[in-house]
């Protein structure tokens, strides 16, 4: 059985630097651009891109950030230390969106993706049809030493998976949880840590929330209750700071709702997608 997901490579420049980016998509209709979590890749969206209830009405697109999945790092990567920044991340998302010619895309991101959609709404809201933040927070206080995810004497893949494994709900199906961990075990050396530079250090967006106009760019926030990285409280702080944002706490889900238990996540996402469709009729 062949799935409906089609994957291709895109050549484009990001901040003047040539990149080769892996993009996959399924479905037709309203463009829905999906952003994976730190240290992972597009496979987290396999449930969504294989869900006919969604792809019937939405053109679902996911891409691997540079350094992730099947998107190579740019030439010269061996000379630099990877550190994701707000500007580079927003530039990559908007660059891919523009290269694909998406009109008023809905952007849905999880974790670091749930963070950057807040910046996208603040800085590029006029170009977007709305944002959906999964596990969204404006900042996170570090609670472990992230250097353990990138050391010569510790297996990086196993450490990354070990760090994130408990972020999922214990009720999530075992196979989906371990699939999610496999993606973490496959990340390049130091890439998860480099993403966390944005998530835990540089990308504190508390000062940006007031710039979001939800009349122009609607904001939905969906957060799994078992997430202790981006806690439900952190999401509710964002919701309180962004007038018009609609927040839902999802029971029996954690930090990777779309990947750890797609069926349960789909039920929480459906009303949001219905609202999007109703607004565009």
């Amino acid at each position: 059985m062949m799935e409906d997901i089609i994957g291709r490579y895109m050549r484009l420049e990001l901040d003047g630097v040539p990149h080769r980016i892996y993009v996959e998509e399924a479905g037709q209709g309203i463009p829905l651009l999906c952003l994976h979590t730190a240290g992972s890749d597009t496979r987290q969206w396999r449930g969504l891109l294989n869900d006919p209830a969604v792809t019937r009405h939405f053109r679902c697109i996911a891409f691997d950030l540079p350094w992730h999945g099947k998107s190579s790092p740019p030439e010269g990567w061996w000379r630099e230390e990877y550190k994701l920044t707000t500007a580079a991340y927003a530039g990559a998302v908007m660059g891919v969106s523009r290269a694909l010619g998406l009109e008023k895309p809905l952007v849905m991101g999880c974790s670091i993706g749930g963070r950057i959609v807040l910046e996208l709404a603040a800085a590029h809201g006029a170009e977007l049809g709305g944002v959906i933040g999964l596990q969204s927070s404006a900042h996170v206080t570090p609670y472990y030493d992230v250097s353990w995810t990138h050391r010569a004497d510790v297996h990086g893949g196993e450490a990354c998976a070990g760090v994130v494994s408990g972020l999922m709900a214990p009720q999530s199906p075992e196979a989906e949880r371990w699939e999610t961990l496999w993606h973490y075990m496959q990340g390049g050396p130091g890439v998860f840590r480099g993403d966390l530079h944005f998530y835990k250090e540089e990308g504190d967006l508390r000062g940006r929330l007031a710039s979001i106009d939800t009349a122009q760019c609607p904001v939905w926030l969906l957060t799994g209750e078992y997430d202790y990285s981006c806690t439900p409280e952190a999401t509710m702080e964002v919701a309180a700071a962004v007038p018009g944002a609609k927040a839902t706490i999802m029971e029996k889900l954690g930090h990777f709702p779309m990947s750890e238990h797609y069926a349960r996540f789909a039920a929480a996402l459906a009303p949001v997608l219905s609202e999007v469709r109703a607004a565009r009729r």
């Binding site: 214990p170 078992y226 202790y228």
Partner: peptide, 14 residues
């Protein structure tokens, strides 16, 4: 079926 925040060693650390 441990409650959120108590379900994992890193959650307890957090």
């Amino acid at each position: 079926e441990p409650p959120p925040g108590r379900h994992d060693l890193f959650a307890l650390i957090r």
